[in-house]
Design a protein around this nucleic acid. Structure first.
Length: 231
DNA sequence: AGCACA
């Protein structure tokens, strides 16, 4: 519903982002937050007047995008709830990969956009034409696919670590996790070897650490499995 | 509010 009637796309369009966040940090945080849903091929964010506060995250799979749209909808990100939809068009990086990227066509589209802006400025009519929408077709509440996929826990400032070697100590994990901003503490339970909880100040910081250390091997047999702790 | 590919 919040996705409007835009058909599924492997790229998601995010708006209502905090415009004060610097572009590079924004991209990093988006990457950290969204890579749990699948492989991210590209993130586009521009700070021009028209495009600030928005970003596109390109996934390698549509199912990943679908999960992200649903599960991260309204997620408070830098104090503002993210509004997520499918992107309206195919990302250039996808078109390039498919070999369908047409540079000429691209330039024409750009020129066309520019033309329309200028035109709009020409007839700066006091009461412009009513762009009345008819509400569109009664779209089904969900895009075509059932998307029977494993649920990802909601983001949490506490991480749940599994598959640790038996001899892991909290000091070892401390060293590993405290390199990431917002680190608070590691908690391990004597009676339960192989797991740990690592707390950060907020969801974003925990996500950054998760992304960075996901699969990290303390021993060759023990790639860390990091997920969000259950609330 | 705003759908791009610096």
């Amino acid at each position: 519903m919040l996705t409007g009637d835009i058909p599924p796309n492997q790229t998601i369009y995010i708006k209502n982002l905090n415009e004060k966040v610097k572009k590079e940090e924004l991209k990093r945080s988006l990457y950290a937050l969204f890579s749990q849903y699948g492989r991210i091929l590209d993130i586009v964010a521009l700070k021009t007047t028209k495009l600030r506060g928005q970003a596109w995250v390109v996934f390698s799979e549509v199912t990943a995008a679908s999960n992200a749209v649903r599960q991260m909808q309204n997620f408070p990100f830098y104090d503002k709830p993210m509004r997520i939809q499918y992107a309206k068009s195919k990302s250039d990086c996808i078109a390039r990969a498919e070999g369908t990227y047409d540079k000429k066509k691209k330039q024409e589209e750009k020129a066309e956009r520019k033309r329309r802006v200028e035109e709009a400025q020409q007839n700066a009519t006091p009461n412009g034409p009513r762009a009345e929408s008819n509400g569109g077709p009664a779209a089904s509440s969900r895009p075509g696919r059932p998307s029977a996929q494993e649920a990802v826990a909601d983001p949490n400032n506490i991480l749940f670590i599994q598959n640790l070697p038996y001899e892991t100590t909290s000091m070892m994990l401390d060293v590993l996790f405290k390199q990431y901003p917002g680190f608070r503490e590691v908690r391990m339970i004597e009676a339960k070897p192989g797991i740990a909880f690592v707390e950060f100040e907020d969801d974003i910081q925990s996500s950054v650490a998760m992304q960075a250390l996901q699969g990290f091997k303390i021993t060759p047999q023990n790639p860390m499995a990091i997920s969000y702790a259950k609330k």
